[in-house]
Design a protein around this nucleic acid. Structure first.
Lengths: 180, 180
DNA sequence: TTGCACTTTCAGAATGTTCTGAAAACAAAA
DNA sequence: TTTTGTTTTCAGAACATTCTGAAAGTGCAA
């Protein structure tokens, strides 16, 4: 084995170690968020993969069962963070992640808006509507507080909508300028 | 019982029903986020309470055990979302929530930055540093991807820092203007 | 120093989430 | 049609989180 090959193997091993560490840590971070650890790990794996992976590849790399891999791949596809690839002549389904960070951000933001912000707005609107005609001091305070929350959340929702509709090429330079 | 009293009682009952619904739903939303349901419910309860509540009040209102109430009150205090009140002449400890929505937002953002964004930045920096000298195509792609993530997360972190340092009286009108 | 009012802790129970592995379903090819 | 490769489902197991309730701890005041 040549010196060159030896060096390459060492580098390859070093890279693998860092990559595996990245996947593991991304899983930990995912759970700190509200996200299933395996789902976060599969996402990390696909984000740094150089080619689409099959369900079996994912099972092999992360040492997880077929059911687990399958379910989490579907879930990720549901979020729009990965897409499935069908290669002609191949029966197997492959998956690849969206790698553009700005697009990822927009996708995640849109989903969280839908799953977390919208329902909160619904609850708050309902609370305000059903108490604003009451005159007991407690009810008045309640309406005031829930209305303040509602207004804030609606503003945040609109801001996020506008940001997500923008082009990265406009937003990022603008943000950097605003920061300085 | 006078007509007036009857009306007041009905309103009181209506208010209670909406308030309890609010607390319950806030708990559900909390779990959709990564937050313990009881913790979210206690927070909701204290947000709309007109006076500070004791541990026993919380136990009574939410029908939960002392240990549960205690632990989650401490946790909320750890986040800085509630503070404890000691009344002179009283041995009992009371709790009240920060009600100002902007301050709440800043507190939550600061904590999430600390608990979720900082560790992510740490992981990503480490990945970039440990692979940027490698020349294998896979390693190069990995560094590129993790660096892009790092830059994005660092930018988001800075933006949030700046927002959280601002005055509500400056940010909110500015945001509203920007929206239109 | 004893009793009292309250807070804190924690083992085990209850509940909730995620994972496995095998069977069923499906669909392309033989 | 049957075979073959693949995806999907899901019952039960494994694991993780949250909750209860009782006991221990704390410190004031009689």
């Amino acid at each position: 084995m040549s010196a060159k090959t030896t060096e390459t193997n060492r580098d390859q091993a070093a890279y693998r170690a860092v990559r595996d560490e990245f996947i593991a840590q991304w899983g930990v971070l995912g759970s700190a968020w509200g996200i299933n650890r395996t789902m976060a790990q599969i996402h990390a794996l696909l984000m740094v993969a150089t080619a689409p992976l099959s369900t079996d590849d994912v099972m092999e790399e992360l040492q997880i069962s077929r059911g687990n891999a399958h379910t989490n791949l579907r879930e990720l596809a549901g979020w729009g963070l990965i897409r499935s690839i069908i290669r002609k002549g191949e029966r197997k389904e492959f998956f690849e992640a969206e790698k553009d960070v700005w697009k990822m951000f927009c996708t995640i933001t849109r989903e969280r808006k839908r799953r977390e912000i919208r329902p909160a707005i619904g609850v708050l609107k309902d609370c305000v509507e059903r108490t604003e005609m009451l005159r007991e001091p407690e009810a008045v305070a309640f309406t005031k507080q829930t209305r303040a929350l509602l207004e804030f959340v609606e503003m945040a929702d609109s801001l996020l909508s506008k940001i997500v509709r923008s082009e990265q090429s406009k937003m990022v330079p603008w943000a950097l300028k605003w920061l300085s």
